[in-house]
Amino acid sequence: MIDYIDIRQLIPQRQPIMMVDALVEADEQSATSRLIIRDNNFFLQEDGCLGEVGLIEHMAQTASAHAGYMAFKQGVQEAPIGYIGEVKGFCLYMLPKKGDELTTTVQIVLQAGNVTVVNAMTKVDDSLVAETQLKISLKE
């Protein structure tokens, strides 16, 4: 477990599109985040479920929070801006709904220049929600 850091220190996104509540674990190669799906979530659908693209954004912001945490530990004040370059092999197993708490782990596969390749996996309790590979390119 890492000590609590205000997520706004780790990611540049702000409401209504902050899709990570907190980073709960992090080391050089991986990180884990949490998000409770509340009724003001930008990606909430009329059927009360979180839209798939909200899941992808949540996974991407977990990867950004990891990069932000590593930068923060090196004394960088401003969270780096990262853009999704590619979503590859996304697979949806179930749609989480309002009230669910997502736990997402990202694992760095490769870093080359300003592009980071991560595998992301999201669960609610022990049920697998979705997984994907993401390429995040950090703004120079």
Binding site: G85, L110, A112, G113, V117, S137
Partner: peptide, 25 residues
């Protein structure tokens, strides 16, 4: 481009166990 160049690096790394550092690119 910078995004799929990474696919090339990953492919070489996983299939030939050869790591291509960024500055060799």
């Amino acid at each position: 481009d910078s995004i799929n160049l990474v696919d090339l690096i990953a492919l070489v790394q996983f299939n030939f166990k050869v790591t291509i550092p960024v500055d060799d690119l």
